[in-house]
Simulated scan of single mutants.
Amino acid sequence: MAKTPEIRPSEASRKGQFKKGQSGNPGGRPKSIKEVKEAAREHTLLAIERLAHWAASNEPAASVAASNALLDRGWGKAPMKFDDDEDGGQIRITIERGY
């Protein structure tokens, strides 16, 4: 069985850290992420039109999901309120799936 090397305290404190002036991401953000965002944004109008179509549909789940998506994109998501006065100081978080 191989013996694990002993790590000195000075080495352990440096583990996972970069030298002063050294970046953890010297190449910067990958260009492909920017290109994907730009490509997706080219379809914004189409996506909004489709969401509007589904928001007006008679299918309740699709209508609610599309309406929520349009409101979130147009006005931003509603702020979350945390009130610790109810339930004896406990915070209750409700997550609703909009489908």
Rank of each mutant, 00 (worst) to 15 (best):
K37R: 15
D87V: 13
A47E: 05
E86C: 07
F82N: 04
I91W: 08
N68Y: 00
G21P: 10
M1D: 06
A65D: 00
G88T: 07
G24I: 03
H43C: 11
T44F: 11
S10T: 14
A66F: 01
T44M: 10
N25K: 12
T44Y: 04
L71I: 05
E42H: 04
A62V: 01
R14K: 14
L71H: 08
T44S: 13
L51E: 00
S67F: 06
I48G: 01
A2G: 08
I48E: 05
G28M: 15
R92Y: 02
Q17H: 13
D72Q: 04
Q17E: 15
L45Y: 04
E11F: 14
P30S: 13
L51V: 00
S32V: 15
R8H: 11
L46H: 07
W75F: 03
D83I: 06
P26F: 10
E49F: 01
V64N: 03
W75D: 01
M80A: 08
K37N: 15
E49T: 11
A2S: 13
M1N: 05
T4P: 10
R41A: 14
R14V: 09
K34G: 12
R73Y: 08
D87K: 15
V36Y: 12
V36W: 15
R50T: 05
P60C: 11
N58F: 06
P5R: 12
P30W: 08
G27R: 08
L70F: 00
E42Q: 14
R8G: 09
V36M: 06
S32E: 14
S32A: 14
F18I: 07
L51M: 03
G88L: 04
K37L: 13
P5D: 13
A62K: 00
A39Y: 12
D85M: 07
K19G: 12
H53D: 01
L46V: 14
F18W: 13
G76T: 03
R50H: 04
G24M: 05
A2D: 11
N25H: 12
K20A: 15
R14E: 08
A56D: 04
E42S: 11
E86V: 14
T94N: 01
H53S: 03
K77P: 00
N25R: 15
R97K: 05
I48S: 01
A52M: 09
R73N: 09
G21Y: 14
G88Q: 10
T44P: 06
F82L: 05
F82A: 07
A40M: 08
L51Y: 00
M1Y: 05
V36E: 14
K15A: 12
G27I: 12
A66H: 01
G21V: 10
L70G: 02
Q17L: 12
A12W: 14
A39I: 10
N68R: 00
K34N: 15
K3A: 11
W54H: 04
